[in-house]
């Protein structure tokens, strides 16, 4: 019994600590979609989702044919907790258009939804498509470059941040710096958390 419990706990821990996320294609109505499973969101997500503020997951999916870019889609999932109804509004947009709008009742349902994302009908299937790959870059609560630059300017003007005082870098400060570093590497969007996943090579039947 104890051994079984240990195995069970071990399995739970293994699941919680997260194995690598997987990205797979799906074909439906002559379109290629993506299924993104097992994203390892930060531990703070559970609390953030119940903050009453909107949490956004931005996923940029690209389709490549022999390393040649065939198309890009921006998927945004906005989750907002209703403090009174205690439900979660989950809206999925594709390139700015709402494609799915639902209300989930529990935090567990939201986490399951976010960890098993289905994004159908992203790219049309065209004739003579060679070997294909999908790539998804997921960002949690992304911050636009312009907005970050404004904050950076504000900090420069107002901060009491001086060398000695920065000696012990705080976690929040590290988060702030992490976002800056992403922009320093010329990323066009940055976030506290981001993960990139690529699919195995696949092919689709001719239409």
């Amino acid at each position: 019994m104890m051994r079984a419990m240990r195995v069970l706990i071990g399995l739970m821990l293994w699941t919680a600590s997260g194995h690598a996320a997987e990205l797979n294609h799906m074909v439906n109505d002559r379109t290629i979609g993506a299924r993104l499973e097992g994203l390892n969101y930060p531990d703070t997500l559970r609390k953030d989702l119940r903050s009453g503020l909107t949490n956004r997951v931005l996923i940029r999916v690209t389709l490549n044919e022999l390393n040649k870019l065939q198309g890009t889609r921006a998927i945004e999932i906005a989750v907002k907790y209703d403090l009174w109804d205690e439900t979660f509004s989950v809206v999925q947009r594709r390139d700015g258009t709402v494609v799915n709008d639902q209300v989930l009742k529990t935090l567990g349902e939201v986490l399951t939804y976010l960890r098993n994302l289905e994004m159908p009908n992203l790219f049309p299937v065209v004739a003579d498509m060679g070997p294909l790959t999908l790539r998804a870059e997921a960002l949690l609560n992304p911050i636009e470059r312009e907005r970050m630059e404004q904050i950076q300017k504000w900090v420069r003007e107002n901060s009491s941040y001086v060398p000695l005082e920065g000696a012990a870098e705080s976690t929040s400060n590290a988060m702030f710096n992490r976002i800056f570093e992403q922009y320093a590497r010329n990323a066009d969007a940055a976030a506290e958390w981001r993960e990139t996943v690529a699919s195995p090579v696949f092919s689709v039947p001719r239409p």
Binding site: T44, K47, D48, R50, S51, G52, L53, L83, I143, M148, I151, W154, V155, N158, S159, S160, Y161, E165, G166, A168, E169, S170, T171, S172, N173, M175, F176, I179
Partner: peptide, 17 residues
């Protein structure tokens, strides 16, 4: 983000009640 830039805080969280 402004608060996060301050080394006086290890972490900052803002939420609604």
């Amino acid at each position: 983000l402004r608060l996060a830039s301050q080394p006086a805080f290890r972490s900052v969280d803002i939420y609604l009640e």
